[in-house]
């Protein structure tokens, strides 16, 4: 089993990378040293749709990536979805126990094997106010993931993701996000909790018309036409959080 002292060299390669190219090279070296064939450090966004400050560094087979992007899987990929619900690294064979897999999801996993990607280990990275991401390591279908290497993979993944944030100057979305007044935010929050304008008016001590107006103004500021989009944008930009919405 690799201990930290032995892994320090790998970790330093990743941490001290100053460009995406250096980080890619570092990940390639570390990935191979841990007995993996592939690595993928990525934000969970649709790379075809987004004019992008998001990061993606990987050495996956080109066919797989082309198909992945054609199908807009950056957001819906089952491994990425599983990664949303945990903060600890997980093996891909655990995914069926983490999220409910659809037939389409099973096709994705099957397709990956067909393209030469077998089992893998994903380290989730959730930074409040930013797109979620992850750092994954995978082996060819004929190989096995070495359990002994998972703790160091966890650590490398965490430091590599942070290096990617630093190199690409990933910043809080909030910086470019429209501002909401406290009242507008209150109304967005109660709307996200499923309250009608009348109900939120009772709760907030406002008139229903005022609540409607607050929500209309908030929609204009986010430049979205519909209320569900407003709730999602406000969540994504960190004006409200899932904990706020679910009262946890």
């Amino acid at each position: 089993m690799i201990n930290l002292a032995a892994a320090k060299e790998f970790l330093d390669l990743v941490r001290h990378a100053t460009t995406n190219h250096e980080l890619y090279e570092a990940l390639a070296i570390v990935c191979a040293a841990m007995g993996f064939d592939y690595f993928a450090l990525t934000h969970h966004v649709d790379f075809t749709a987004r004019g992008t400050d998001a990061v993606r560094l990987h050495n996956y087979p080109p066919n797989w990536v082309a198909w992945f992007d054609e199908n807009g899987l950056g957001v819906t990929d089952p491994v990425h979805r599983a990664s949303q619900i945990t903060s600890a690294g997980f093996l891909w064979d655990r995914v069926p126990g983490m999220i409910k897999l659809t037939t389409a999801d099973r096709d994705v996993l099957e397709r990956a094997r067909g393209e030469g990607i077998g089992d893998g280990f994903t380290v989730p990275a959730h930074i409040p106010g930013e797109a979620s991401g992850s750092c994954s390591f995978a082996v060819a279908p004929s190989s096995q993931v070495c359990d002994d290497h998972l703790p160091i993979a966890q650590l490398v993944g965490a430091f590599a993701f942070e290096a990617a944030r630093r190199i690409n100057q990933i910043r809080l979305v909030e910086a470019d996000s429209p501002t909401l007044t406290e009242r507008q935010r209150d109304c967005v929050l109660w709307m996200a909790r499923g309250k009608s304008d009348w109900e939120m008016a009772q709760i907030l001590g406002l008139s229903p018309e005022t609540c409607t107006q607050h929500l209309n103004t908030a929609r204009e500021r986010f430049d979205v036409a519909k209320r569900p989009q407003l709730a999602v944008r406000a969540l994504f930009d960190g004006h409200i959080s899932f904990a706020d919405v679910f009262g946890r």
């Binding site: 201990n3 903060s87 600890a88 690294g89 160091i152 650590l155």
Partner: peptide, 28 residues
């Protein structure tokens, strides 16, 4: 816990791991 650890790294200050992460129940 590793999720919080990722945020601590993201604060930008100078961090060194003291050892490898260990699983503790559902978390690491």
């Amino acid at each position: 816990e590793t999720g919080w650890l990722q945020q601590i790294l993201a604060f930008g200050w100078d961090c060194e791991p003291l050892g490898l992460p260990h699983r503790s129940g559902q978390t690491m």
